[in-house]
């Protein structure tokens, strides 16, 4: 997708996924953005090929007695876009909640 405009919230979402916050709700928690903002961004990034979405394996989920979740991974294009974003928004790296670590799932 040509000329993708990387807005500040989009960059934050991309950063969160890179840091290992792979699920929609985790991104919401760590970024402080609203669900109505984060999800459309995730869809857009997925469409633009910057994120790839996968489903957890059914077997793992059965062990935890919870449904499988959809998780997001950054792609090469995504990494490139994030590098550009760091240049454009110098403070970006400090925006996520300090010391936050992704849940171990």
């Amino acid at each position: 997708m040509p000329s993708f405009r990387l807005t500040y919230p989009t960059a934050i979402v991309l950063l969160a996924v890179t840091r290992g916050f792979r699920h929609g709700f985790d991104v919401i928690d760590v970024s402080g953005l609203k669900s109505g903002t984060v999800y459309p961004i995730l869809r857009r990034l997925e469409d633009a090929g910057m994120l790839r979405a996968r489903w957890e394996s059914v077997a793992d989920a059965r062990d935890a007695q919870r449904p499988p979740r959809r998780y997001y991974q950054i792609t090469g294009a995504g990494s490139q876009a994030l590098r550009d974003a760091h240049e454009r928004y110098p403070g970006l790296a400090r925006t996520l909640a300090p010391g936050a670590t992704p849940a171990t799932t």
Binding site: F25, S35, G36, T37, V38, R43, D47
Partner: peptide, 16 residues
Amino acid sequence: LRCVGAIVDAVTLRRR
């Protein structure tokens, strides 16, 4: 409250 975002998500997704 967070689920209100689901409406926005669904509507924008649909437009896409």
